[in-house]
Lab assay of single mutants.
Amino acid sequence: MMAYMNPGPHYSVNALALSGPSVDLMHQAVPYPSAPRKQRRERTTFTRSQLEELEALFAKTQYPDVYAREEVALKINLPESRVQVWFKNRRAKCRQQRQQQKQQQQPPGGQAKARPAKRKAGTSPRPSTDVCPDPLGISDSYSPPLPGPSGSPTTAVATVSIWSPASESPLPEAQRAGLVASGPSLTSAPYAMTYAPASAFCSSPSAYGSPSSYFSGLDPYLSPMVPQLGGPALSPLSGPSVGPSLAQSPTSLSGQSYGAYSPVDSLEFKDPTGTWKFTYNPMDPLDYKDQSAWKFQIL
């Protein structure tokens, strides 16, 4: 009977010793046993002879290597770790002494450095960015050149030099007046198309007034536009458009034309069986010896 009264063996659950049927240790109110408190290391007290050895090595170098620390530790009968900690504390003490010396050398008012006064946003004049500046400075420094007289040679050079070769001289006033084509001369031969040399188009003023001019072949195509416009036809070669000034309004060009419109200028042929003959000019830059190549039959 006494065997049943004795408590059973101890069981360990999660490293906790349980005594038989008792489960009081598993209750929430019972805390787990805490780790033992780490003991504080005792402070090391250095003797005068030990301090002399350490100070002598510190005077040589503030960062001794492990071999120098072990050698000193053997002399003063201390572990190497204590020597390492002593050098660490000695360097910190040396830095603190240097900072105190710097503070003593500075004057009393030198510690508080005078800061520059901050400028207020409204006091300083700042350039306004509302208006974009002129990058080319046209509004201040540029002045347009004065327009020359209508009959000045410089204007003629600016007008005619675009179309004339570089080897030719500017046309005088008398020749510029001949550039304007007359109405009857352009409409006299509506079906004849003559190819003149390129030099005649640039230099010869008579080429624009003769039936064999460069633009005589364009007349049949330009004249039928007159009834559609409801007024006189516009002429690209009329009046002052080739003269001194090219800047004319469309209203000033509306009254200039080749001449009176005639039914002869239409595109319809009077004789459907007729042929169109292209007159060959020996001055043509295209060297075609066979003139029969310039004739064709309209079917």
Rank of each mutant, 00 (worst) to 15 (best):
P144I: 08
T155N: 01
K88T: 12
P147V: 07
V242A: 03
Y195S: 01
A196S: 03
Y214S: 01
S292W: 15
G217T: 09
I76F: 13
D287L: 13
Y67E: 04
K93S: 11
F46C: 14
E168C: 12
A117R: 11
R40W: 12
E42H: 05
L78Y: 15
S19G: 05
D65H: 10
V242G: 03
G209E: 02
L218T: 00
R90H: 10
D219N: 14
P64C: 14
D219V: 15
P7Y: 13
G8E: 00
P282L: 14
H10Q: 04
P33R: 09
A17V: 14
P282N: 04
D24C: 15
T251W: 12
Q105N: 03
L229S: 04
T154L: 14
A166L: 12
P9T: 08
P224F: 14
A174Y: 08
P172G: 05
S139W: 10
S262G: 10
P108K: 13
S152W: 08
D130C: 05
A117T: 04
E70R: 04
P21V: 13
L218A: 02
W86S: 14
A200E: 00
S128D: 07
P272K: 09
F46E: 15
P79K: 03
S206G: 04
P153D: 00
F278A: 00
D287I: 14
A192C: 07
Y214F: 06
T44P: 14
S257E: 02
S254H: 02
N281W: 15
E173A: 11
P7C: 13
K93R: 07
F87A: 14
P220R: 11
L237A: 02
Y11C: 00
V180A: 06
L286C: 03
P170W: 09
A200T: 04
K270C: 04
A174I: 06
R82L: 14
V83R: 10
P64R: 14
V160Q: 00
K120P: 01
P263N: 06
P165R: 06
L78D: 12
A247C: 11
S152H: 07
R98A: 02
S223L: 15
A3N: 00
A156W: 13
N77K: 10
P147A: 04
M5D: 00
A68I: 07
S213T: 10
A177M: 12
G209H: 10
P133H: 06
S206Q: 08
P135E: 09
N281I: 15
G239V: 10
S238R: 08
L179N: 02
L54Q: 15
P147R: 10
S262P: 06
M283N: 01
S81E: 03
R41Y: 15
E71T: 08
Q297W: 14
Q248G: 04
R98W: 01
P170H: 08
L299M: 01
G259F: 14
Y63A: 12
A59K: 08
T44H: 09
L229H: 03
